[in-house]
């Protein structure tokens, strides 16, 4: 992996040039990931807290049309929308966020290929940054990630000091992005990067994901699920701020009698309506069954199918939960039950 150094000044120039060249830059802002208009808005703070929502929306929008239809007497005309091929740079994302794209890519590309996701992720360049924030909800190390992991990033930044950043060029896509701006980069100092990475405080590893997976396999009917089910209020805050939750709904919306569109909208497994049949029968008719699905999907079903944990340990779901249902605490408890 090639390594370079960039000064803060040149980094801002780089962003300014990218913006001029019609590249969208998305960065962690005060309230969430934002599309910036000016390079000064760029986030260079590796100590910042996670944004409330992840940048998932930029590759998998909260609502998007999948077809437009026009009705004419008894005939119907269908128009398929095209996703714009425009480069988006996600700048300064934490390793736990960056990793989400490759995890999501598995579900959107097994069997049928979801072009809406693929066009966007193909056009997204991920500039990750080492993370120096860890609170009691963080657990990236328990899901095989780390605050210094460049896994998933195209380019990875390691702050050497306030005005200097180590630049790891991880992928070809990253190299292609930086190529026109080579003069902003100088020779790398990988020794320093390594030393800084080694000094970063790692969240403690609190569970063994494999043990958790095995426990879930044998404990579908365990009473433990009820203890969480009665506390959960059944909203989808956790799923919607999650970088890797990907369930969706499909609904039609008429503009008027003749025209409309079919929308793909985020949906969440904690909603009672999610699995309710038209007949009224609901296979997951209790909040504990729905919560069991959430944890099982993340730590068993997805790993079984795609060899990937459906969780990056960012802790967003727990920080934002109205009743502080803490996924880290729950999975740690499951780990303890598994050891017993």
């Amino acid at each position: 992996m090639e390594e370079k150094i960039i000064s803060k000044e040149n980094l801002l120039k780089l962003c300014s040039d990218l913006l001029k060249n019609n590249v969208d830059i998305v960065t962690p802002g005060e309230k969430g990931y934002i599309k910036i208009k000016n390079e000064s808005e760029i986030s260079l703070n590796s100590k910042s807290k996670h944004t409330k929502a992840s940048f998932k929306e930029y590759v998998f929008p909260k609502s998007e049309p999948i077809i437009y239809y026009k009705k004419n007497q008894s005939d119907v005309e269908i128009i398929e929308p095209k996703v714009e091929e425009k480069t988006t740079v996600i700048f300064g994302a934490k390793p736990c966020d960056v990793r989400s794209i490759s995890i999501l890519s598995k579900i959107f590309n097994w069997d049928y290929k979801d072009e809406f996701f693929n066009v966007r992720s193909r056009n997204t360049v991920l500039i990750g940054m080492m993370c120096e924030y860890a609170d009691e909800f963080c657990f990236c190390t328990s899901v095989n990630l780390s605050p210094t992991s460049s896994d998933g990033s195209d380019v990875f930044l390691v702050p050497h000091d306030e005005n200097t950043f180590g630049v790891k060029i991880v992928t070809e896509k990253g190299a292609d992005l930086l190529k026109p701006y080579e003069n902003y980069l100088s020779a790398g100092n990988s020794e320093k990067t390594k030393a800084i990475e080694a000094s970063v405080k790692q969240p403690e590893k609190v569970f063994d994901a494999e043990k958790v997976r095995q426990w879930i396999s044998g404990n579908f009917e365990n009473d433990y699920w009820n203890s969480i089910g009665k506390m959960c209020l059944g909203c989808a805050q956790c799923a919607f701020v999650c970088p890797v939750c990907h369930c969706f709904d499909i609904v039609d919306e008429d503009y008027n009698y003749y025209e409309g569109r079919r929308m793909k909208n985020w949906d969440g497994c904690q909603f009672d309506m999610f699995t309710k049949h038209a007949s009224g029968h609901n296979p997951r008719d209790d909040q504990s069954k729905r919560y069991r699905q959430r944890i099982s999907h993340k730590f068993k079903y997805y790993p079984d199918k795609f060899e990937e944990i459906l969780c990056t340990g960012c802790g967003r779901c727990s920080r934002g939960c109205p009743v502080t249902i803490d996924i880290k605490g729950i999975v740690t408890e499951i780990n303890e039950l598994a050891i017993k």
Partner: peptide, 10 residues
């Protein structure tokens, strides 16, 4: 709004 209905559920 992302329609998570946390407002309603809380």
């Amino acid at each position: 709004c992302i329609k998570c209905y946390a407002c309603r559920q809380a």
